[in-house]
Nucleic acid binder design. Structure first.
Lengths: 257, 257
DNA sequence: TAGATTGTTAATCGATTAACAATC
DNA sequence: TAGATTGTTAATCGATTAACAATC
């Protein structure tokens, strides 16, 4: 999923204060804990046990304690974790104390939705620039931002210090966009286009892929159906295989028009 | 991520022809292979080696062969895999030979984008019903489908044999929607709302969470920055921690308005 | 002190990978 | 046959989990 170096790996020259080396699985859960902690804080909790936080986050408490142990020790035996302290600690580890400029490339259906996304309008991320390849869309204003032509990416990247690129273009355009982002110095990419991106070492790519998620669910539905007799929803109908058909799930665009 | 039983686990009473027991990691990659295979087919390839397919899918060939070995043996030593045969095999394992009815709950910004998603309009998935809690939105027509009130979920679920529920509501509404979906017999849920859902055993939940993806990227950016001196995009500016601030990334809606 | 809860240990499990014998 | 490539083995790695000693 994510293509990246593990810069904290043992053996590198130690010129910087060693950052804790977190397992990827832990990194992926910290944002979930953080969200649960914010909810707890809103509800007036000053302290929470590993059991309480784990259940709010939907994991078991052993895993939670193991994860938090990688950050150092921030709990009190017999008491639990101080909610505000733990929030600060996780935000610090995730680098959320910096505000990162996000570029959104592709302002189709999905791009429009993402441009209005509240998650962007947070302290840690601000959507700083919009791009599209369609001249008809360039100049359009969305949420107070003007859409640039994608060829301006390099220039704007420098001006706005773009740190993260979000690709919401058709699959056919995504690799070229990724190349442009990388050339512009962006080393973190979130890809909504249904395709594999190839990027140089040191660039992180994460992907969000609706078709893949649906197909994984389909697998488990299929399993459940073949085990329990007939399912609640029921298999709508069996499709006859017609070789040569159009691919069932390979849309031209990240989100079609 | 996914909460589900492993129905094919050893030890169950064997009343059905045993389905191959696939590792979750393999299941998650099969859709990627499938997409790559469709591209190869479009480009006229009749045969592909594990090396060729692996590189198109962005994995190494050992992993690909291992994954495919779980499906049985469909390659020819010295030659490779027949593209069409392998497509058929993967589609069959993923249950993509059935057409599944998808319910989309929440037709805000994101919901609208998803309703137009080409991945839904495939042979394996058809978007069969739209729901919203906002009376002002009920009755609206999107892509040829009328928006129902969410209270009609149970009735429509039976009529349309809904198999998969996609939640694109605000976080605050998501759990109630999930409960209604489960009550209506839906056992596969794709959750775009930024919250943890709790569902009974036997129900699969997969989540797509933009804020989490951004925060994971942020972690690696942070790492890269602290290692290599200053990054290309540069840390825009350091935020002062103001305890009591609004949560940085816990939007009220899956995609805000 | 007694009860509660953390942080850590060690066992287990699942996933990845390289190497290579089998075989087309 | 010789070259190519699969399917499988076995070693390695990372993640999960339960249990419990440490300690508030």
């Amino acid at each position: 999923m994510s293509q990246h170096r593990h810069p904290g790996a043992p053996g590198r020259a130690g010129t910087v204060p060693a950052l804790p080396d977190l397992p990827e699985a832990t990194v992926a859960r910290l944002p979930v804990y953080l969200r649960a902690l914010h909810q707890l804080a809103e509800n007036g909790h000053e302290t929470v046990s590993s059991e309480g936080l784990a259940s709010a986050a939907g994991v078991n408490s052993a895993k939670l304690r193991k994860d938090l142990s990688h950050l150092g020790s921030y709990g009190t035996r017999g008491v639990g974790y101080d909610v505000e302290v733990l929030i600060g600690q996780i935000e610090s580890v995730l680098g959320l104390t910096q505000s990162r400029a996000v570029a959104l490339v592709g302002v189709g259906n999905l791009g429009h939705a993402l441009a209005g996304y509240a998650g962007f309008a947070s302290r840690a991320f601000r959507i700083a620039a919009l791009f599209d390849a369609d001249p008809a869309r360039v100049g359009e204003e969305i949420n107070g931002l003007v859409v640039h032509h994608v060829d301006e990416l390099a220039r704007v990247a420098v001006e706005e210090r773009l740190a993260i690129g979000v690709i919401a273009t058709p699959a056919g355009a995504a690799q070229a966009v990724a190349d442009q982002l990388v050339a512009a110095g962006v080393r973190s990419i979130l890809n909504f286009a249904p395709c594999v991106l190839s990027v140089p070492e040191g660039v992180d790519v994460r992907k969000v892929d609706l078709a893949i998620e649906l197909q994984i669910l389909s697998f488990h539905e299929h399993r459940k159906a073949s085990l329990t007799g007939l399912p609640a929803g029921g298999p709508a109908h069996t499709l006859t295989t017609r070789p040569g058909d159009a691919p069932p799930t390979d849309p031209q665009e990240a989100i079609g028009t």
